[in-house]
């Protein structure tokens, strides 16, 4: 019975990781940037959820407005900051997003993020359902479904829209993208915006489970990083599979061995994976 409920929680964590990892993957694919600020954006989303519902907004509205707001923040950050170093060496982009993570965390600290804040589960989603003797909290099911729905929507959008075509072109080959007349700067604004919004959506939806504080996204960031490496840097379907694998490993590890050891086991797994299959599950990760 423990195993079954752990499996459910693993899927929930995997779903949250999925929302974060997809954004990381997109930013990496189009801009070749590893975004160290992604965890801070998750925290920002969670905190924004607390502020908005504290202002009396219903949960549903919060779940829409917070990602929109953070998405806008993402666009502004890309336009104002990341765009300044597009043609610089890779290390500058790493340093810059790291600095952004520090800055956002600092701001969150000043806005009440030093203390753990609670975002209550909306009343409609309270309670549990029993399936074959297994009790499942409704809210956790909701979060998983939300993640799956958002992921499916994003993947469909990537496959069928002009925007998706551009993203895929730039992902395959940035120079080719430029040849096709794609304005990479503007494309990047939208990619960072959407990725930030996804991270924030994960933050808000996760807040009733993980609570909200300035560094709530730190652990998520580490796990999301492990996810994208396992799946192969830049591989979307790799990220999907890896997110659930990481979610399950962490939750089962925590259930049986304690949380910190689970993280260690995951790290060892990632190292082993890099030795054996450096390009991730589907062998399509980038190694340039």
């Amino acid at each position: 019975m423990l195993a079954a409920s752990l499996a459910v929680n693993g899927v929930v964590l995997g779903s949250v990781l999925l929302m974060c990892s997809l954004g990381l993957t997109l930013i990496y694919g189009v801009g070749r940037i590893v975004n160290f600020a992604h965890g801070a954006l998750f925290s920002l989303g969670a905190m924004a959820g607390v502020w908005l519902s504290g202002a009396g907004l219903p949960f549903w509205l919060t779940l829409i407005l917070a990602p929109l707001g953070v998405g806008l923040v993402g666009v502004v950050l890309d336009w104002a900051i990341l765009a300044r170093i597009r043609h610089r060496p890779m290390v500058d982009s790493l340093l810059l997003t790291f600095g952004l993570a520090l800055l956002i965390t600092g701001v969150l600290y000043e806005l009440g993020g030093r203390n753990v804040q609670i975002l209550p589960v909306p009343s409609q989603l309270e309670g549990i359902v029993s399936v074959g003797g297994l009790t499942l909290p409704i809210y956790r099911i909701f979060v998983s479904l939300l993640a799956v729905a958002l992921t499916a929507a994003l993947l469909l959008f990537l496959r069928n829209s002009t925007w998706g075509l551009r993203v895929r072109a730039a992902n395959d080959d940035p120079e080719m993208g430029a040849c096709l007349g794609i304005d990479r700067g503007r494309l990047m604004h939208s990619v960072v915006g959407i990725s930030a919004a996804l991270a924030a959506a994960a933050g808000v939806a996760g807040a009733p489970i993980f609570t909200a504080f300035a560094t709530v996204g730190d652990k998520i960031l580490i796990l999301a990083f492990m996810t994208v490496i396992l799946g192969g840097l830049g591989s979307l379907r790799g990220a999907v599979v890896a997110a659930y694998a990481v979610g399950l490993i962490i939750v089962f590890g925590e259930g049986y061995f304690g949380g910190q050891l689970a993280l260690m086991a995951l790290f060892l797994l990632v190292m082993a994976m890099l030795i054996k299959w450096p390009r991730g599950f589907f062998g399509e990760g980038r190694t340039e």
Binding site: D92, L95, L96, G99, L100, A101, L102, L103, G106, Y109
Partner: peptide, 13 residues
Amino acid sequence: LIYFGGLFILIVI
């Protein structure tokens, strides 16, 4: 931390 992060960004740029 805000000044620290801000300075970090400024120096890199």
